[in-house]
Design a binder for these strands. Structure first.
Lengths: 341, 341
DNA sequence: AAATATTGATAAAACGTTACAGCAAAAACG
DNA sequence: CGTTTTTGCTGTAACGTTTTATCAATATTT
């Protein structure tokens, strides 16, 4: 199969009998200062473009203009249904604005997050959206110093000048959830945590402790099991929980819906009824949460819209030439009470 | 926040007191023919690289070498848990081999698939993996003519010279599934289809008909409802199914697991027991399928490995400079019998 | 009719990199 | 010691764009 060399501006110029500059200006329909091109030549150029099937070379263009039109997103675990929705949201806004999107799945491995940083620096990505688990201040510094716009979703306040955040302050939502459980009579509420040392994991555990405290329920360490945000480990966690609990829990708060759903099924397999014998609630409101039986009580995050928001933050920052002061957009949470509690 | 200009080869060269060429050769540790550089200079160069925080400019490099080190993947619906796994597989292999990955979610919209084609041509992506729903022969022609490697997952034989396919021949698997249902005594087996006019949708419907025929069961149109691969529409489909069926079905085969799972929950809500009153089976074996209760009988596709395979096909083709004859790798399917049937 | 302004197009330089050929100095050879 | 070979490095020319300045040829003004 003979594949032709891609045609370049030069080819088009030759074919149309004009200069390279002219072709460039026509295809970009440049509007700058004193650029005048007759309709006649414009047509001739477009004809040539069609005839040769010309497509601009993005690398050359980027090299010259210092614009790559690339955004990137880093997610901790693309297999968690939470993140595809976030990605979709980002992609929506990105492609509306002429950006393409690089997606990196860290697969929960710190070294992959580091690799992400290297990759975006190499690629001269213009902006990155992330849900960082392991990256720290020094990584953000490297990124922003390379003049890359950054928007992250996290619970800590803007960690850096020039970094926008979707601020996950779920204190209130977690309190509401715990209050709900308490109002149903629960006092021994267990927590299956996410990975400790990660932002989301630490944050949810802290929120759980805070909410308990506020409700006047003493924190009981034997009711906490350290998980990893994934479904696979859940049966083991439940074993551990029942083994170590001084008194068995009457409710379980899992760090995310994926774990909560796995918990419900596991409890069912053990012959326990949810919510009659034990209540379960999660966090994220992934689509499965509303569908299953019993439907899962959880905290809604509106992932797709948050993705759109992340992308918008980036694009605004880019259009402002990164002169914007950093912003922290508080996220809206909603306790969704269903019949798993 | 003053962001410094990125340092370039030139800066490094100056700092190390050597020529640009030398720096380039060191950082690429070029191995070509007669390139000799003393260890001493190598060290000096690396020091300078460290000192200045030099990162190669990917655009410039691509422009010069005609290698973008970019792959792209197109999926029909990233919210379907099937695809994130595929993406993860692709990403695994891609990053192992030094490629970055552009991800496009078509959101089931034909125009987004078209937009994908434009984007990859602009970007000079080196290879694309796709699960095309709406793209046709002429689109593939455009892509291959631009000398982009293509690997697709589809049920039709290789549609183009130079296009590799993961060949979904599920005739056998579907037969096995239907045989299984029949052996359980089912004769009225309904089908909730995917979108017709899409490759996967048509294929699964055809496979269903073929398998029925082979089993000697007459095809009953009133047992088929046209769905869209998503969970949302399922309750309506079930309504429709029960309304239009001449005789109510005793089993339902959904075109994918997402629909099958939604079906099971919907039936439960109607007070029907699965599998006692009605059996349900799906297709894909997404993680949720094995977890739920009743666990779903389905056809396993090993998505992550298939993703890896797609990426490998691409990379092999790239390394062969696209001189490879097109390949069709038959996929392995496995009927996974669980207790929804 | 001379001076000035406008229109339409272009040549040349730069963006940061890699490939190729070349060249001096040192080493090896006769 | 003269010649050849090897070693270590460098200059230059692309790659395909966009940008800036410039320049003829008209058109408009005085």
């Amino acid at each position: 199969m003979a594949h032709k060399r891609r045609s370049t501006l030069k080819d088009v110029a030759l074919h149309a009998g004009v200069s390279i500059t002219t072709v460039s200006q026509v295809v970009n329909n440049s509007t700058g200062g004193n650029i005048r091109i007759s309709q006649e030549t414009r047509d001739r150029v477009w004809q040539a473009v069609q005839a040769l099937g010309y497509t601009p070379n993005a690398s050359a263009r980027s090299l010259r203009t210092r614009k790559t039109n690339l955004l990137a997103v880093l997610v901790p675990d693309i297999a968690n249904p939470f993140y595809p929705q976030l990605i979709r949201g980002i992609q929506d806004v990105a492609s509306e604005n002429g950006y393409d999107l690089l997606v990196y799945d860290a697969d929960d491995r710190p070294e992959r997050e580091k690799a992400f940083v290297e990759a975006i620096l190499r690629r001269q990505v213009e902006g990155v959206a992330m849900v960082p688990f392991y990256l720290g201040r020094e990584d953000f510094v490297r990124i922003t110093q390379a003049n890359i716009a950054v928007a992250i979703m996290t619970s800590t306040p803007p960690p850096m000048p020039g970094v926008d955040v979707l601020q996950v302050d779920d204190t209130q939502a977690l309190s509401a959830m715990l209050d709900h459980l308490i109002s149903k009579g629960h006092r021994r509420i267990a927590h299956l945590s996410g990975v400790l040392g990660t932002i989301a994991g630490d944050c949810r555990l802290a929120g759980y402790r805070r909410a308990l405290e506020r409700a006047g329920i003493p924190f009981d360490e034997s009711l906490v099991c350290i998980g990893n945000f994934r479904a696979g480990g859940v049966p083991g966690l439940i074993d551990q929980l029942f083994a170590q609990a001084k008194q068995p829990p009457t409710a379980i708060f899992a760090a995310n819906d994926v774990m909560a759903i796995a918990t419900i099924y596991d409890l069912k397999r053990r012959g326990l009824r949810v919510p009659d014998d034990i209540a379960v609630c999660g966090y994220d409101n992934i689509p499965e949460a509303g569908m299953m039986i019993p439907a899962l009580t959880t905290i809604d995050q509106q992932m797709q819209q948050e993705g759109q928001m992340l992308a918008r933050l980036l694009i605004e920052r880019l259009e402002s030439k990164n002169k914007l002061v950093e912003r922290a957009i508080p996220l809206e949470f909603r306790l969704v009470i269903r019949n798993s509690t």
